[in-house]
């Protein structure tokens, strides 16, 4: 496919009713390496490529963190980046909305495109509203719940919107993140007083409020309890039809539960990518087999 030609984009508004894929409760969902515990295991036939990495190399000074990675990120499916610590997953993820540029020593080579348009050609603030990021540690701002969610809306507007005008989009974002029922009685509650899981869902709501097209998640559940993790994983499955989701995870079971496609990285290189079933059931590369099989990690 010609990388300069933008692919036909199927934009689904976030306002549309979510097409929920509820995982059926079948019995084989427990334990490592067990079968995929949800319906919709097949990648969506409607998946559309939104972002494309070609020969992406990222270096911190002399140290190469990501080495010539080719990757396609598609709307309609969830892409999981897996691999041991320090393999460059997070760096690759951060380069997708140019957050690596906040690190002075980082340099990038290769080409990343969003809808066929080079990332460097897109104004960085616009890029980051379209490609939003949720971090490993929940980082809600020291404001009320409402102000956190409204933050991007207020900053994105050319004229400061009035609070009543924000109430509806804020509620929608909180509902989508599955936090509404817990905070609706007191939206002025300080965000930093929420529990860890609530904080992370608030951060997701904050990202969703700006209606991003791609959502990057950097180990969003690593600091969370199992219940919050389940909530967020369900949320990811709901989102994938409307937003291209990339999730970095240490947790292989989580990758199996949520991902349609999996990319395995090792020492900065993309060793193998494929559908979830390919990677977990029939990995081609020996290193993938070792990692997925638990030989190292």
């Amino acid at each position: 496919m010609d990388p300069l030609m933008p692919p036909p984009v199927r934009r689904i508004s976030l306002d549309a009713p979510p097409t929920v894929v509820e995982p059926p409760a079948n019995g084989n969902g427990a334990g490592a390496g067990a079968g995929r515990a949800r319906a919709g295991a097949e990648p969506s036939p409607h998946a559309v490529e939104r972002m494309r990495c070609e020969g992406v190399t990222i270096a911190y000074g002399p140290k190469i963190a990501v080495n010539r990675v080719d990757l396609s990120i598609r709307q309609g499916e969830v892409l999981a980046l897996i691999g041991p610590s320090g393999c460059g997953k997070t760096t690759l993820l951060r380069s997708l909305n140019r957050l690596t540029e906040l690190t002075p020593s980082a340099a990038r080579g290769g080409r990343i495109a969003l809808d066929g348009e080079d990332l460097d050609a897109i104004e960085v603030t616009e890029l980051r509203t379209r490609v939003s990021m949720v971090f490993q540690q929940p980082n809600p701002f020291p404001m009320s719940v409402f102000d956190n969610v409204a933050y991007a809306l207020r900053e994105g507007a050319s004229r400061r919107p009035r609070k009543p005008a924000l109430a509806e989009p804020v509620e929608r974002a909180l509902r989508r993140a599955g936090l509404w029922d817990e905070v609706k009685d007191n939206l002025e509650h300080p965000a930093l007083r929420l529990s860890g899981g609530q904080q992370q869902r608030l951060c997701i709501a904050r990202s969703l409020a700006a209606q991003p097209e791609v959502l990057l998640m950097d180990e969003p559940c690593s600091a969370l309890d199992p219940v919050s993790t389940t909530t967020i994983e369900r949320l990811i499955l709901e989102l994938r039809e409307q937003i291209a989701v990339v999730i970095v995870t240490h947790n292989l079971q989580q990758a199996q539960r949520v991902a349609d496609r999996v990319a395995f990285m090792y020492l900065g290189e993309l060793v193998e990518q494929g559908t979830s079933d390919e990677i977990f059931r029939a990995p081609r590369a020996p290193r993938t087999r070792d990692y997925v099989g638990g030989a190292f990690g």
């Binding site: 603030t125 509203t129 933050y151 990202s207």
Partner: peptide, 25 residues
């Protein structure tokens, strides 16, 4: 905290506004 500034940057808010709304605040 760096994470707040990064969080704001990741939402597409420019450096100046980020420092004003999150940093100075």
């Amino acid at each position: 905290p760096r994470s707040w500034l990064e969080g704001s940057a990741a939402l597409g808010v420019n450096r100046w506004r980020t420092w004003w709304k999150i940093g100075v605040r």
